[in-house]
Structures are given as structure tokens and as C-alpha cells.
């Protein structure tokens, strides 16, 4: 069966990627290569690095919500360069005794798909932190929230996802 050059190139990358992953190598943003001809097999995740925090009670304070994106993937920033793209957003559920402010999103970084270097996107990759202003009554609090995001690798994109999180903190 005839195999095209494109297919060969993509298949070659599958092997390289598999080896790199097997060796525990981490792909850096911007060093992406031509895509593969099958979807990425490794299970990829976006993770909330949950950690309890303490803030002063009854005063405006800032929580830091840390997220990790699996190497090789990126997600749109809160301000992607195109209105056709889905921004990363944090949606909060009401919590008794907590008055949250608007989340403060980090700036994204420029990214281009390897085959089209002129097309710039604004993305998060690696670790990123969303800062959340809160004013809370004294005591322990757990806020439910959802991170909505849409992820891509160096050639393909995946449907939008919702990551439910619990923001645990103590106001003293």
C-alpha cells in the first residue's frame, strides 16, 4: 500500500514521541513537531494542585490556585487572540461566609503550530496560577469551582472540558 510522505513524517513522530514519553522526557512549548497520524495515546490531564491556604479573616486577601498542564499540551489563555476560540475561565459556586472577587488570570504566552509559524495564539502551558481575591469570615472554607478550558497538542485540538475543583482555605 502506498504511504504518503506526510504519513511517513507523522508516523516517524509517533515513534519519537513514544520514546520521549517512555524516557520521561518533557516536551517544551515551542519545540513541537509535526503531528502524528493517530491521536496521542498517553493519557493526558490538566491537574489542580490542591493545597490548603490561609488568609486573613474579614479582609481582602488573595488565594492562589495552581494548575498543571501535561507536557506537550497547551490550553487557550483567558484572552485567546481569536473570538472563535474558547477562553480558559474559572466559575465559582457561592459559599457561605466567602465573598470572592473576579479571578485574576495570568498573561498567556504566544504559541504557533509548527507548520504555520505565522499564526500566533495566546496559550497557557506547563504551570499556571489563577489568583482569586476573597473576603471571608473566620474559619475553614471550601469553595466549589470549575475550570473550563480547551486543550490542544502541537497539531490537534480536543473538545472543551470542565475540571471541577475544591478551593480549601482557612481565614484567621
Amino acid at each position: 500500500m502506498k504511504v504518503t510522505r506526510l504519513s511517513q513524517a507523522r508516523r516517524a513522530f509517533v515513534s519519537i514521541a513514544a520514546l520521549a514519553l517512555a524516557a520521561g522526557a518533557t516536551a517544551q512549548l515551542g519545540s513541537a513537531q509535526l503531528s502524528m497520524d493517530i491521536p496521542a495515546k498517553p493519557r493526558a490531564t490538566v491537574v489542580y494542585a490542591a493545597e490548603p491556604q490561609s488568609v486573613p479573616a474579614a479582609r481582602r486577601a488573595m488565594l492562589e490556585l495552581r494548575f498543571q498542564i501535561v507536557p506537550g499540551f497547551h490550553i487557550n489563555s483567558h484572552t485567546p487572540k481569536s473570538e472563535l476560540l474558547i477562553p480558559t475561565t474559572l466559575n465559582l459556586e457561592p459559599e457561605t461566609g466567602v465573598k470572592p472577587g473576579a479571578p485574576v488570570y495570568p498573561a498567556g504566552q504566544l504559541y504557533s503550530f509548527p507548520s504555520v509559524p505565522g499564526e500566533k495564539l495566546d496559550v497557557y502551558a506547563g504551570n499556571f496560577i489563577i489568583r482569586l481575591p476573597v473576603m471571608a469570615t473566620p474559619g475553614d472554607h471550601t469553595m466549589d469551582a470549575t475550570l473550563k478550558y480547551q486543550a490542544c497538542d502541537n497539531a490537534s485540538c480536543y473538545p472543551p472540558k470542565s475540571l471541577p475543583i475544591k478551593i480549601v482555605f482557612t481565614a484567621k
Binding site: D37, P39, K41, T45, V70, V168
Partner: peptide
């Protein structure tokens, strides 16, 4: 916190998807 640690969202649905493709990558 434990519930939070266990909570992960997969970008790729499950291993069955990949299994439907043959081992040569096609």
C-alpha cells in the same frame, strides 16, 4: 483534599479509542 487530588480530567477519553487503531499507527 483527597477528593481533589483524585479529580483529573482526561483530554483523551479512554484507551479504547487508541485500541481501535492498528498497532502500526494507522
Amino acid at each position: 483534599m483527597q477528593e481533589q487530588q483524585n479529580r483529573r480530567v482526561d483530554l483523551i477519553p479512554d484507551s479504547q479509542s487508541a485500541a481501535a487503531w492498528d498497532s502500526s499507527g494507522g
